[in-house]
Design a binder for these strands. Structure first.
Lengths: 220, 220, 220, 220
DNA sequence: TATGAATGAGACTTCATTCAT
DNA sequence: AATGAATGAAGTCTCATTCAT
């Protein structure tokens, strides 16, 4: 490309710029939305606020996304991607280590200064009674549980996780644990000590997953 | 007044009726609000809807509670009471059994046909980014954690729970686990098997709490 | 009623007043809407304008009618009633006289200072491409044609209208004639002489309806 | 320019292409607008819709016509031309036949699959209360009435139309009749039988226009 | 010539709240 | 106690228009 700068430069630059402008506008809007959702909630945030915090006009959100719901859905998916991208970068030896690393990664996203982690939490919470968001969120849960299931199965194979642990229900429990912890941190960041929490979390999970000698009274 | 109950019977009986009617109206409104919040969310529910589902007029909520926020606060507290009342009725021997019973009780509230459990979840979720509700919710979390802390300490004393388990962080983890599980059930009731979940939950918690031989490598 | 003023006067007066207030508000809104629709058209008139011209607030139209469409439908029906009421008061001997009187009555409604006649025209015109209004208007047309059909059949019986005239198609033609004339008057009130128009109208209709000796070349 | 057509062939051919493309674009836009106006109404149709149905981008209407009003005015005139062109092609012997043929031609335009006839009706209807369009429409009415007047005068001279018929008022009546009939057909195409309508229309007009023996009683 | 990003006015609608009855 | 008429703020969305490419 750069070798032949003469080739219809106007057309090339024009295309590029139009596309860039659109991409830049959308990014600005999504970032602004994430910040505002994380700070104030979804219904409390108006489209006009989003447009203006993004440095544009009131009407731009509708121009780009058409509907508030469309923006929310788009942002929800983008936030999830952040989580999954981070999960995918985890590179450890055993299944147990994978689980523990995933926990750390998750909590790191929540306390990160970038708003996407917290925005995701807020959107997830808002989805509870809202039919329009539920499918997107349910799908996200599903995919995250699959990440856990996959690590557990790895652990089954490499021996780091006891075969007594059933993958699916444990994945649900783990996901619940993370969401619930995050929610508590969100509401009262100072009520719990983050370091102790993380350490205890590891202990609990390790205790649940590692092999141990059978007990007498198993199953009430 | 109480001295001559018969002298002005009409007035007395009217008094009683008035008081009763007031109480009855409030109860109807709170029940209706719980149902609607659980089904549609808080902002999506208008005061007029609540009044009408309760069998009254649109103006009654304001008449009784003054403000929507006041109604929400009132309902939130009432829902919490339900949980705590149920927790208080648990009567078991050991701390470990107390924890397990509390878990069962919590999950039972969520899947109960009565809407208060789910309404509470919805209100809790809505509180995430909302400054006005956060204190109420944070306080509720605090009190619930205290329930867990108390059982853990009981367990420490009766030997059913290992002294290695720190009460506060573990309480936070447990509360998180329950909230998070409930949220998943809410969004996708069929995605997880309730029976397997409960059983696995018990396993995890038991593994985490019971005494076990110290491990060699205590990774980072 | 007035004989026993003591009978729960508070309740009676209260009921009356509430009902009256609602009726009065609705009437004011419908009148204002008729004026504004006649003067500016439907889409050009905002609900806020209607409320304010009626002497109330911006939001009252929605409070009473819920939707702009509902208001329009309601007003359309009310305007039609005006026409039919006027038609019903016609009291003449023969069918031919009935037709002529109906024509006069129709034109009088259009040129009347009261806005309902013109508002009806405007609404009728707006219904052309709008699916939501079409049924209401089609029904109105149907009923008006039936008025004409009825006069024509009367004329058939009393001999004032030739049996060669088929009732249905002629009713359609007559209705069309009136609507079309009215539309011309609306757009350019001074382009046509009202008196000459009415007289010529009578001539045309009389010529079409009265018995006459058969011609040689009938049907091109 | 025309002197040296071959010297700069590329430029010339590009010129022609430019002009042609411009014309083609405008035609596509006007056709699309006619279809959409006829189907949905004017205000309900956005410029973006028109551009896209024409196979172009949303901005093209403004690029070509500047304003929505300009497009409307342009389209209104074009639709009228269609009518007048069709009227001008009528070739009959007598004035009476001219009137009858004009009626048929008008109705044919309305029921034609091409959208211009119906688009014209819709625009005419929208003009009722709108000051900006009224002059254009009033002028169109005027010109159409002149067509009728001209045929009536022809009929006066050739004896096919009675001298008792005054040209101007009758032209207004006839135009009204056609517009009104068309409007009924538009709103409820199946409510009236087109064949019977046309036949009855001819009868009415013939009865009104042909010579007949003076009547005794000329009521008021 | 044509595209489409961006603007901002304006409309409809919903709803909490006030107040007269 | 209860009703519901009335208000007005706020939000979402549509769209004509401008302007840079």
């Amino acid at each position: 490309m750069d070798v032949h700068p003469k080739v219809i430069p106007s057309k090339v630059s024009r295309r590029r710029t139009q596309v860039e402008r659109r991409a830049q506008g959308e990014k600005a809007l999504l970032d602004a939305a994430a910040e505002l959702f994380a700070a104030q909630g979804i219904v409390q945030t108006s489209l006009a606020q989003i447009g203006q915090r993004a440095g544009y006009s009131r009407g731009l959100v509708n121009h780009h996304f058409g509907t508030k719901d469309a923006l929310i859905d788009r942002l929800a998916r983008q936030c999830q991607e952040q989580f999954w991208k981070a999960f995918a970068e985890i590179d450890v030896e055993t299944g147990l280590e994978g689980i523990l690393a995933t926990i750390d990664t998750y909590l790191a996203q929540i306390v990160s200064p970038a708003p996407h982690g917290r925005a995701f939490l807020v959107m997830r919470a808002a989805a509870l009674p809202e039919a329009s968001m539920a499918p997107t969120i349910a799908e996200a849960d599903e995919r995250t549980r699959e990440v856990f299931v996959s690590w557990i199965e790895t652990g089954h194979r490499d021996g780091s996780i006891s075969r007594r642990v059933k993958a699916e229900p444990f994945a649900a429990i783990l996901l619940g644990l993370l969401h619930g912890l995050a929610a508590q941190l969100f509401v009262a960041p100072d009520a719990v000590d983050m370091g102790a929490l993380r350490s205890q979390c590891h202990d609990v999970v390790r205790a649940a997953l590692e092999e141990r000698e059978p007990r007498r009274e198993e199953r009430q």
